[in-house]
């Protein structure tokens, strides 16, 4: 079979299932009927669709499903559970939103105080805050004698006095007490270190042990691995 108008055939053949079921609009229904009268291929297609329609798509061997009170009760139970959960979540959210924070509680408490008490408390609070700021502001890590203790990792170690200074490396098994004794006998003070290589900087006290003597003394100690003097640097 050849079609004088393939486009018309293509359109109609797609509409055949709905033509069988009479669910096309009247215009489409008529269009299909007209084409069918002269198209054997579409007539054959129509036969297949009518057969499918007659078979009723397997209702014969498909178990029937029916609604049941038990199932509906289960559905309602599911809804109850869902709504209870949603209500609980909403209540908890509200509780959290309504629970005042520490600042809000403090504000409320202050507002509840009589006027004079409120002002006295406010002044006290401000005084305490000022004191704290003063103490904190005066807390640079200064060593006795006005020396700052800084690590060698600082890019620009500060030089605070024109005093002899030594680089010193201690043995690994030296104790803190031994270091303290060593430094005390040489009137020295740790001002920097340790570096990544374990080097400390010791500054000798003004008018104390001479630099060369201190180096000799320290080198004589078995717990000192290395001592070298550092060239003096003038204060800026």
């Amino acid at each position: 079979m050849t079609h004088s108008n393939n486009t018309e055939h293509d359109v109609v053949v797609e509409l055949l299932p709905w033509y069988v079921k009479n669910t096309l609009n009247p215009k489409e229904q008529m269009r299909v009927a007209q084409h069918l009268s002269s198209c054997s291929e579409c007539q054959q297609e129509l036969g297949l669709y009518r057969q499918i329609d007659n078979v009723n798509l397997g209702t014969s061997n498909t178990p029937i499903w029916k609604p049941s009170p038990v199932q509906f009760a289960n559905i309602l139970q599911g809804i109850d559970a869902l709504e209870t959960k949603a209500a609980t979540a909403a209540t908890e959210t509200t509780k959290v939103a309504k629970t005042p924070g520490l600042f809000a509680k403090l504000s409320a408490w202050l507002k509840a105080l009589p006027g004079p008490v409120f002002w006295i408390m406010s002044l006290e609070t401000m005084a305490i805050a000022a004191l704290v700021m003063l103490v904190v502001g005066r807390l640079p890590q200064q060593l006795p004698g006005g020396q700052l203790f800084e690590t060698l990792s600082n890019e620009r170690p500060s030089v605070t006095a024109n005093l002899p200074r030594l680089h010193i490396v201690f043995a690994e098994d030296i104790t803190e007490r031994e270091i303290r004794t060593l430094l005390q006998t040489q009137q020295g003070q740790l001002v920097e270190g340790p570096s990544m290589l374990g080097v400390y900087t010791v500054q000798l006290a003004a008018g104390g042990v001479q630099e060369q003597q201190a180096i000799i003394n320290l080198r004589a100690n078995a717990k000192v691995k290395l001592v070298e003097g550092i060239a003096k640097v003038d204060q800026p």
Partner: peptide, 29 residues
Amino acid sequence: GEILVWAMDRLSPEHRIVLELVFTENYAY
């Protein structure tokens, strides 16, 4: 008829659904 039922059961869900909606449920396209 039985062959058709057998064949319908072997279609993909998408194809089966459109056939059911047309022929059992009488839905327009």
